[in-house]
Design a binder for these strands. Structure first.
Lengths: 348, 348
DNA sequence: GCGACATGAGAAAGCGCTCTCTAGGGCCTC
DNA sequence: GAGGCCCTAGAGAGCGCTTTCTCATGTCGC
């Protein structure tokens, strides 16, 4: 009925049907389906025949009612209402993780937070036994889902450490954001740049804060040559291109003499480069620019190609899934930091 | 056990527990949970109390075993092995559809085809009663999943008409690809351009073929002013930026005199513009360029901003979901074509 | 050649929920 | 004031599967 009235959508054959056709008991069919070794070759063949002629497919719902597992994993994506689409890095991470789950025989169930009462629905979904565990990507500090995630009755892995992860009995994998920022800014210092600005990401995401931290750490470390850090060199973006443009314009107004910019994302960097060029400044001659992410679609195609901090997207997804699987089989929550590296192209 | 040994992951309270605490029968609790009207206010209150103190959450698995519905919908994305990430249009469509499903109280289950035996796993998943219906996006002609999709025991909606949709008992929504191409190329003709080239998308996707069709139709219609269509003006891309660059270089070699390009995607157009400018050609003065998709992140940020065919992403998702819901409640499969429009910016 | 033992297959008890069917009041009607 | 109704709540039968427990074989050792 829920399936409507179309032909071909009828009820599917059950275990009993197969059992009857094969002249065995339900239990035996179940054993065959689940590849238990305790079935004689002849009986097994008979059952397999029956399965084939009936086109039997086990009902996963009935199965998971008794096995208490669904082989599905929630993929929760914190989405600041309108912006998830805009972030190619996040898209890639989602897909990498999702593929990784598929390879592990787990069905990824994508859950986007963002709508009105979404977080309630999602929390209920997660708590309701629909999935064996969850992987959470890109939660924002203000996400109303966050409290619920802390007390979920299933294992949870965070991609990117959540705020206050010290109290969460969940694992997390993160890219070494601080180190990435450090590499980038050190590179700029090494290039002889003296007035190094930065455009941050949305500071309600921890990654943005840590990239800013890394930037500030380098500046502090080179206080002798660079002088006291100038707050005017910090402009706030939001990881987007438009945000990068806006911030770059601000910076240019405030500190026309700047000679380098460390942007919190490739998109931001691309926006910044656009503004710089339109302002008649040459990249990298007048202003060196470094991004963060190393997204093929962007970094390699800016003019000039972008020097940027490479984030290991596939490895990220892989580790996330591996760690969750460990937790699912009783292991302790994993905390891990993935290395980054600087990819030097033409922009710095 | 599947949940490991961590505290707090224990068994959840069942309907019986609630019933016992409230001093009523299971049936009554079920009625309260499902908001049946047949429960007296006093009893209802008692049950609600019990639910609250126990923190009861219904087990969806058990429920759907009897109701025969899961309230989940499969979101199948045909992924040419490595490339889904690269297509921002597809990402947006996925997310729009997914959000739309969420708003309709249906849980989107993202299924990416692409891996080795993925199609078998996915077909089994879809046929296995995990979801009530499916929405299929971006299937390629050679996708091994396609045959399986044709004979699924559940309602299916295709986003973008699949190859040979005439024989599929499924619905489809598509953007009017031909018309979009027609608008674009007519615009170029109207601008007085005479040697109008095109860069196609992957021709194993129907959208690419139809955009090419539209292009050819306009050229044929203007044969009197444009002369006989020149096959050298058609170069093959794959919707990506790199593909656009490659194709543009070919075109420039083959037909240096071209004065306009219709690209099958914004990404492709962006690539083409890059090549043109590096070749010392001005856009749009020397060569006018039109894209397809109208993705904010790209179209508005090329230099010059891109004239392009706008695809209604949100409406696409909305209609797709609405049509599937209709089928789920017994309606006939919907076939529909969404209108497109040309967005004129600076590149043509 | 008899008991001890694997080994393969069946019977049956659920998993947690929904939903029909049934029973018991209270209230209305005549 | 008795019969009939409606309304509420309980009993119980499954949904399709897994899994223990049990039993009937066939096999081996001594």
């Amino acid at each position: 009925m829920a399936n409507g009235a179309r032909s071909g959508w009828g009820p599917r054959p059950t275990l009993d049907a197969v059992a009857e056709l094969a002249g065995v008991s339900r239990a035996t069919v179940s054993r065959v389906v689940n590849e238990s070794s305790k079935v004689g070759p002849e009986v097994r063949a008979r059952v397999e025949d029956a399965i084939r002629t009936l086109g039997y497919v086990p009902n996963p719902v009935a199965r998971s009612l008794v096995t208490r597992r669904t082989d599905a994993v929630g993929l929760v994506v914190g989405e600041p209402s309108n912006m998830v689409m805009t972030d190619p890095y996040l898209s890639r991470l989602i897909l990498a993780t999702s593929r990784e789950l598929g390879d592990a025989g787990r069905q990824p169930v994508l859950l986007l937070t963002g709508g009105e009462n979404d977080h309630a629905r999602i929390a209920a979904y997660l708590a309701g036994g629909h999935v064996d565990g969850a992987i959470v990507l890109s939660v924002h500090r203000t996400d109303p889902l966050l409290p619920a995630l802390r007390s979920l009755p299933i294992p949870v892995m965070f991609g990117g450490r959540p705020w206050g992860d010290d109290v969460v009995a969940a694992g997390s994998i993160d890219v070494d954001q601080r180190e990435g920022a450090r590499l980038a800014v050190e590179h700029l210092v090494g290039l002889g740049r003296r007035r190094i600005a930065t455009i941050t990401g949305s500071l309600d995401q921890r990654a943005a804060v840590e990239r800013l931290d890394g930037y500030q750490a380098v500046l502090a470390a080179h206080r002798d040559t660079l002088g006291d850090p100038d707050p005017a060199l910090i402009a706030h973006g939001d990881f987007t291109r438009a945000g990068g443009e806006r911030a770059m314009r601000e910076l240019l107004t405030r500190v026309p003499s700047l000679d380098a910019v460390f942007a919190a994302s490739d998109l931001t960097a691309a926006g910044a480069i656009g503004v710089l060029r339109r302002a008649g400044l040459r990249v990298p001659e007048d202003v060196a620019v470094i991004g963060f992410d190393d997204l093929e679609e962007i970094a390699a195609w800016t003019e000039p190609p972008l020097t940027t901090v490479h984030q290991p997207v596939s490895a990220f997804g892989r580790r996330l899934v591996a760690a969750l699987l460990e937790m699912l089989s009783g292991g302790e929550p994993v905390r891990e930091m993935l290395p980054v590296r600087l990819v030097t192209r033409a922009s710095a």
